[in-house]
Design a protein around this nucleic acid. Sequence first.
RNA 1: GUGGGUGUAGCUCAGUCGGUUAGAGCACGAGAUUGUGGUUCUCGGGGUCGGGGGUUCGAUUCCCCUCACUCACCCCA
Length: 435
Amino acid sequence: MERKIYRVVRGMRDLLPKDLVAWRRLEAHAADLARRFGYQEIRPPLLEETELFRRSVGEVTDIVEKEMFTVERGEHSFTLRPEGTAGVVRAYVEAGFAKTAPLQKLWYLGPMFRYERPQKGRERQFTQFGVECIGSLDPRLDAECIALAVRFFEGLGLGAAGGLEVRINSMGDGDDRDRFREAVRAFVAPKLAQYSEDSQRRFERNVLRILDSKDPRDIELNRGAPQLIDFLSDENREHFDKVKGCLGAIDVKVVVDPTVVRGLDYYTRTIFEVHYPALGARSALCGGGRYDHLVEQLGGPSVPAVGFAIGFSGTLLALQELGLLADDEPTGPDVHVVLADGVTELEGLLLADQLRQAGLSAAFDAEGRRMKAQMKNAVRSGARLAVILGPEELERGEVQIKDLLSAEQSAVPRAQLPERARFLLAQVPPTQVAP
RNA sequence: GUGGGUGUAGCUCAGUCGGUUAGAGCACGAGAUUGUGGUUCUCGGGGUCGGGGGUUCGAUUCCCCUCACUCACCCCA
């Protein structure tokens, strides 16, 4: 009989209980921080009409051209979200917020999907925490948004290491961008043949990308290239200056980096990235910026917006690198029930149930092992207390209750077990005894 | 999608210049200790040597393909 081995789909992975200790920490941190910044959670579905992403992300981006997980159902085409903004904006428009409460500060957290070649820190299913502040062009909100991203990392301990770098730039808006793009084209065109193959391709696809090429030849050729900042309209320059001013005022350190060019089509004005350079090629932990035309582009009214997305994979990698991930085991039950020979196995279930009814978490040993093995399991499970029942206790209507940290043990009437257990659990654990 | 590296037990890895029963440490289970945990000792279970094909008397070892992981590129969180 042939046995097929099923494996996790390429580019995806199982998060096992031990992995989730760290994940929960990030999730809780994100939710708490967003709340402190006045953001509310939103959960759009994972699946949207394919057209939505084509329109928002941009037809000629890699995401749309080759990285979408798409399912066709008759006339319809749906795609698993490759990023979060499009769905949130769609929901914003659909909910009619523009008329009832135009300024919406929303956050989301969940899986995204891109059909890419997997690599460390880049999976086909990945998790992003993102915020979208829709409905205002106020530069204080740009700054607030960037601050939120930075505080997210600082709160995890990444800022303290001094390894964080926040790069910002302004992409201008409409006309600025067109004039700048033409200027770059004019700058590159005469020596296009000297550029790398990749950049020659970019010339047609997305000229601006040539400016952040990593090829040494390109970097050399790019010297003296036009800077977007010089092409900004007065209004946009003023906006950018105000954003920088606000960031300074709340002590968020950033560097203005003219080479920052975000990949997606919808960005305007302020754009930024948070890098953790020690991670090498995959150093960008967060990317975001303004998208002042997207809402209108997706059929809504003309309202500006700003947001960002943070990737969890890279964040976890950075934390790991710095040894900031405690390798905590998942927390076990409060109490582990151990049965000695001579009592029926049902007692394990009864005692556990008694504790559970009282609101404590409890487990019993399921394999009918020797007591020594049961005690070992109790410790391994992470339980703080062991409750032991043997024939003698049974006869007296008692159980033994043992604090596995202090090794202190005492008898207690069965009726008082939950109360006693609760008391012991509330005790400060004795300082770890040196071995 | 392009190029390089790797793939032996749950984990970390040895090994076979092609030769018959593939090893270690850790982990896991049992016993020493017939009612009590992180030490020690003894014993034990567990591997189609990633998968498929080829060369060969014989392949885990050599060749090809494939899958997965990994590093870099494209791109990006």
